[in-house]
Design a protein around this nucleic acid. Structure first.
Lengths: 240, 240
DNA sequence: GCCACCACTGGTGTATACATATGATGCGCC
DNA sequence: GGCGCATCATATGTATACACCAGTGGTGGC
């Protein structure tokens, strides 16, 4: 487990009060998304417990939840490891999100209160600014916020929750398979265009915006035969 | 907790060897589906542990998993209870399953090996027989098996897993909201028709079959204003 | 020199004890 | 008689101890 990450976690812990399993889940999620915990990283219960200052009971619950989110791999009698989805799963995850988020956009078009629309607009503006300032972490944060707003305020809570999960999973594989040398996954105008169609209530156009957006996003990934090399590395390298 | 159920569980335990959290998950799922554990039923950890002959550690893990499947409601410092989805969630769950299973049927059409097609055909035949014999539990088992086969053998494993979850959730609400006095939710011919379209590779027709099937199924439910009475009952009655 | 076996270490699986929160009950006061 | 508060029973939250399992390295036999 990375030491830098450990330091950061400790800092956050000092600030807050007691640590619950939910906190651990959030922290690990964030670290995996930011690739501070690369795929294959071992996550022993005792070590995590020491890092967070809690006992194995709490850690176990957190790991179980992370496993149900497909963030870590938990096998009987073996240490939990950060999951490493292969290219097939990546394509399938994108296809699933395309279906769910497209439908959700169509369902949601024309139903959002102006407060939410303004939140989305604000995020889209700040995403563009972050992109221009070359601040990729901030850009990602704002981009994710837009999609999460759509998930949270959709009229179908069941599909909304499913989308929340899929956003996480796609974010992980984007971080994993982003084409080398590509500074940002920003798609100029996509979010603003979607916003206008959501505002005007054009369901078909909104669905189309989402589908096109996700297709473009997946197009920025490197899903070629390189995957065999990755699998090999994770098998041979171990610690990554 | 129902005593009859306790007896049945004990019987199954005697037969098998040791009990793991997965076994508990399966048993509780089954009991909820069969309404042997009605919504609102309290599921204290110690009691469950005594029933299954294991300690709270195992039970806790099982309950966490059941909560992530939306079968039970787990709130901090309170006993876990069997969840009771309201009519809104019921409609949304059906809408979600309609979307996912429709897409999956379209994706899967024409790709299934003949062994799987024969399994589906066998289940459809036996479902009809069970219906004619008025054996509703068997009919439900075969019906579920068909949809699970579709989920398991679809080319998209991510969507397939999502469908597996949605089948469970819709089954629960079907048991909950089935119109009183309705003996069976059998829809004559639906599964055989779907089978033929899957076999011939007609994606559009397969999707249409699924969507029509689920619409008809939801039509058999009683989702009227009666729900207010149900909520009232569960609030006032407590033990249900 | 190579293969099989064995002990060891690191880690999870499970049970249990203690701390703490929550809902119910019954008493006393108003 | 009704309302509020103390008290208790019940159940969960957390930590910890012990048993078991898996991978690993070394060692002895062949």
């Amino acid at each position: 487990m990375s030491n830098a990450w450990q330091q950061e976690v400790l800092a956050e812990i000092k600030a807050g009060g007691r640590i619950s399993d939910g906190d651990i889940v959030r922290q690990v999620r964030r670290a995996v998304l930011a690739q501070r915990l690369p795929p294959g990283t071992r996550l022993p219960e005792v070590t995590l417990g020491e890092v967070f200052g809690v006992s194995r009971s709490v850690v176990r619950k957190a790991l179980t939840r992370l496993a149900s989110e497909y963030v870590v791999d938990q096998r009987p009698n073996q240490v939990a490891r950060v999951r490493s989805p292969d290219v097939d799963e990546t394509r399938q995850t994108f296809a699933a999100r395309r279906l769910v988020e497209g439908e959700l956009a169509a369902l949601t078009a024309g139903t959002l209160p102006s407060t939410v629309l303004l939140q989305i607009e604000d995020r889209a503006d700040r995403e563009r600014q972050a992109f221009l300032a070359n601040d990729e972490p901030s850009r990602i944060e704002h981009s994710l916020a837009i999609h999460h707003l759509l998930a949270e305020h959709s009229p179908n809570r069941v599909l909304g929750t499913m989308l929340t999960d899929l956003i996480l999973r796609t974010s992980i594989v984007i971080a994993l398979y982003k084409r080398q040398g590509l500074g940002s996954c920003y798609l100029e105008g996509d979010h603003h265009r979607l916003l206008e169609h959501l505002r005007s209530g054009d369901a078909a156009a909104s669905r189309n915006d989402i589908e096109h957006h996700l297709d473009s996003l997946m197009g920025l990934l490197d899903l070629g035969p390189r995957d065999s090399r990755i699998d090999l590395k994770s098998i041979l390298g171990g610690e990554g």
